[in-house]
Amino acid sequence: MQSIKWRKRRTFQEATNIQIEEVEEKLKIKFPTDYKEFIKDHNGCSPIDKKVVLFQDSRESINNLLSIGDPTRPIDLLSTIDNVKDRLVDKIIPFATDAGGNLFCFDYRMSAQEPVIVFWDHEIAYEDKESSISYVCDSFTELINKLYEG
């Protein structure tokens, strides 16, 4: 995985294995191993030097990773799902935000073990949930490796 500088907030807390497992159990999914290892040290962090990713005809940025184990934070993964559940397609699980309220997500619709990465556009989701989803890449590691300065 490429080296990226990440900003940790004052309230940073590492995500523990127990917290990750509790979220997986609640959502009835298993996060990819690369993501689980990464989120432990980068829980709720923001990329500093490389944050833009190109896919299809879009250029989007990762604002921050959603946090696990701290429901009081506005970027908590479970709270985020709860806030948008009426517009999210089943088996789409967010893990990061962009600056405009859109989400990078794991897509478990085709595989419970190897979800692909998709981008969820919150504005399109009001009109058509399915059209709000765009394929980005095949894995979390591939997403991180695609990030660049922008």
Results as ranks from 00 to 15, higher is better:
Ser79Tyr: 05
Asp121Pro: 02
Lys146Ile: 00
Ala15His: 11
Asp86Phe: 04
Phe31Gly: 06
Thr16Gly: 01
Phe12Asn: 08
Glu21Ala: 14
Thr11Tyr: 12
Lys51Tyr: 09
Ser61Gly: 14
Asp70Arg: 10
Val53Pro: 00
Val89Asp: 02
Ile39Cys: 09
Glu123Asn: 15
Ser139Gly: 06
Phe104Gln: 04
Glu149Trp: 00
Leu147Trp: 02
Ser111His: 00
Asn102Glu: 14
Asp76His: 04
Gln13Asp: 11
Thr16Cys: 05
Val52Pro: 00
Pro115Val: 11
Ala112Val: 06
Ser111Leu: 01
Phe119Cys: 10
Asp90Thr: 08
Ile144Gln: 09
Lys91Gly: 00
Val53Tyr: 03
His42Ala: 02
Pro94Val: 04
Gly100Arg: 01
Arg73Pro: 01
Arg109Pro: 03
Ile29Asn: 12
Gly69Gln: 06
Ile93Lys: 01
Lys146Asp: 01
Asp128Thr: 00
Gly69Met: 04
Glu60Lys: 14
Val136Ile: 12
Leu66Ile: 05
Asp41Ala: 10
Thr97Leu: 01
Phe95Val: 03
Gln56Leu: 10
Arg73Lys: 13
Asp138Cys: 02
Leu143Phe: 07
Ser134Leu: 10
Asp107Ser: 03
Thr16Pro: 11
Tyr148Thr: 13
Ser139Pro: 01
Ser3Lys: 15
Arg109Asn: 11
Asp49Ile: 06
Asp49Cys: 04
Phe38Gly: 08
Asn17Gln: 13
Gln19Leu: 09
Tyr135Lys: 12
Glu142Asn: 12
Glu37Leu: 10
Phe55Pro: 00
Leu143Gly: 05
Tyr108Ile: 07
Asn83Leu: 05
